[in-house]
Nucleic acid binder design. Structure first.
Length: 173
DNA sequence: TCAATGATTGAG
DNA sequence: TCAATCATTGAG
């Protein structure tokens, strides 16, 4: 799913502009139930509850006391798993800082209280996923995930090659 | 109850 | 290199 979400579009209704705006997903990471780095690893309560809900549900959590991270639940109800959005490419407003998981939620005004648990599969909540452009395998890079210590060797990070929004940081540095 | 940690970022 | 800043976790 993390691979398939590259190139998909995330739409947001911008209240001030009174219009929808779109972003292409260009960097993702996968987390699953049996994955030691996953918030749902050996846990079902608290913030992990959202990870067990219906696929397409938004999972938003606070990290380092300052930054919110946006995920989409990818497994059937009752099984935990999600894909973290690490970078977006704005379709229209190129000035928005959407490079990095903390920056993109800040740019879109996404927080846990308002967004955690909402479906990204319908338009009513002002945030929605749709099909977008498809990137061929030649333009996709698969590497290990960023910023974690547990299960750091899982190659579950995907990004669009040469896209400037993607984190420059490479695993192992 | 309480100290340590973390799927990060920006400043120095 | 390091501080900001807090929900969550795990030890006592």
């Amino acid at each position: 799913m993390a691979r398939a979400l590259l190139g998909c579009q995330l739409w947001q209704f911008h209240p001030l502009a009174g219009a929808w705006r779109a972003f292409h997903i260009v960097e993702t990471e996968a987390y699953t139930q049996n994955d030691p780095a996953c918030h749902a690893y050996n846990r079902t309560k608290g913030r992990a509850e959202t990870l067990y809900s219906h696929p397409g549900t938004a999972y938003v959590y606070l990290i380092y006391g300052m930054y919110h991270c946006l995920n989409v639940v990818t497994e059937p109800h009752g099984t935990a798993g999600a894909v973290l959005f690490r970078a977006l490419e704005p379709v229209d407003d190129h000035s928005l800082k959407t490079h990095g998981p903390g920056r993109l939620t800040k740019a879109l005004g996404i927080n846990r209280q308002a967004v955690n648990g909402i479906p990204l599969t319908q338009w009513e909540h002002g945030l929605c996923l749709s099909a977008g452009q498809e990137y061929p395998d030649a333009q996709v890079v698969q590497t290990t995930r960023i910023g974690i210590t547990k299960a750091a060797d899982y190659p579950w990070r995907f990004y669009v090659k040469d896209n400037p929004r993607v984190s420059v940081r490479e695993p192992g540095h």
